[in-house]
């Protein structure tokens, strides 16, 4: 599951804006497969962690009501050259991590 996360981090006036796109189906578990009539099992990201130089800046708890291929944007005080680490884990225990340098 490598490269499931796309991150852009840009610094401007001491504030870093991070934009994240994760490719994930985000199934709520409440939807039916139209062809088979069976319920599609829940499969969604539960937790997203963001770290700046190893310090936690954001912990996101997500439910099934976040859109497919979720987008997340947030800001923190920082500068170009900082490292931003984003990691997620879903309800099936899958996870992924990526790290970028702020531009």
């Amino acid at each position: 599951m490598a490269n499931s996360i796309k991150v852009r981090a840009k610094a401007k006036d001491g504030v870093v804006t991070v934009k994240t796109l994760i490719s994930h189906p985000m199934e709520t578990g409440l939807r039916k497969d139209k062809k088979t009539g069976k319920m599609i099992p829940a499969n969604f990201i539960q937790e997203v962690l963001a770290e700046q130089n190893g310090n936690n800046v954001l912990t996101a708890f997500w439910g099934g009501a976040i859109s497919k291929n979720p987008y997340l944007s947030f800001k923190f005080k920082g500068a170009a050259g900082d490292t931003v680490k984003i990691s997620w884990s879903d309800n099936n225990g899958k996870s992924d991590t990526t790290e970028v340098t702020v531009k």
Binding site: N55, V57, A60, I66, S67, L72, F74, K75, F76
Partner: peptide
């Protein structure tokens, strides 16, 4: 969704 912010984080989330 719910977001817990760190001390250096701006009060801003977009999703």
């Amino acid at each position: 969704s719910s977001y817990t912010l760190g001390s250096a984080t701006e009060a801003f989330v977009s999703t």
